[in-house]
Design a protein around this nucleic acid. Structure first.
Length: 210
DNA sequence: TCATTAACACGGG
DNA sequence: CCCGTGTTAATGA
């Protein structure tokens, strides 16, 4: 595991910290579509992504959901960063978007390393800021973009994360994540197809000229 | 005007 | 058959 740690985080952390992480953490391979964190769940470990991607969703009071942002390799979950001080519960839901490899660090080390390693402190603060900026970006899109633009944006995001223009999903799933109805998604996708921006298939769609 | 909801027909796996 | 998809009509914001 130390090798993989060095490969992905070696440029960020000093050897001593890498070894400490290696000593207290567990490596996990998680298949696509697995729920990692549920709303209300108490967080005892923080994930460091090595490979793959995770989508972070907000559940509203009616059980509907809304996609907030994606985490990619080198990222960590901002929710756990804020939860580490108290025994706070998660306000968000995390699901693996593709097969993902990550390291789980028990959160008690969060605080210890914050004081001990400058590189760790920088990493945590920078992660926090990056997530905050992504959130603001998402809020901007929800507030100022029409649904058709949000949809296209979502498709592009998904294509980039999967490294593939073929996107495996259903209209219903998109509707949930963008917090709208399937009728709207179907209609807008149809429009995008007529504009030669995408090709529709069953259970998947293809993004053209990115 | 545009989204949502419900309802229905089509057709592919 | 079951489910994803395309479409429409009614209703509401």
């Amino acid at each position: 595991m130390l090798e993989e740690l060095k490969k992905h985080y070696g440029y960020l952390f000093e050897d001593q910290l890498l070894e400490e992480i290696n000593n207290v953490s567990t490596l996990k391979d998680i298949p696509e579509g697995t729920k990692i964190i549920e709303v209300g769940q108490t967080l005892s470990k923080m994930p460091l992504l090595l490979e793959g991607a995770i989508k972070i969703l907000r559940d509203d009071d009616k059980g509907d959901e809304l996609l907030l942002y994606f985490l990619e390799k080198g990222d960590t979950c901002a929710m756990t960063l804020t939860c580490c001080t108290g025994n706070a519960k998660s306000e968000i839901k995390a699901i693996t978007e593709i097969d993902t490899k990550l390291i789980m660090v028990p959160i008690q080390y969060m605080e210890i390393w914050m004081g001990k390693y400058k590189s760790w402190r920088d990493f945590v603060l920078q992660s926090y800021q990056a997530r905050m900026l992504e959130l603001l970006d998402t809020i901007d899109k929800i507030a100022f973009l029409k649904m058709d633009e949000r949809l296209l944006n979502y498709l592009k995001d998904k294509a980039m994360i999967n490294g593939n223009t073929l996107i495996k999903t259903t209209h219903q799933e998109i509707a949930y994540e963008l917090h709208t109805s399937r009728v709207v998604v179907s209609r807008l996708l149809k429009k995008l197809e007529q504009q030669k921006i995408i090709i529709l298939h069953r259970n998947s769609l293809e993004l053209l000229n990115i």
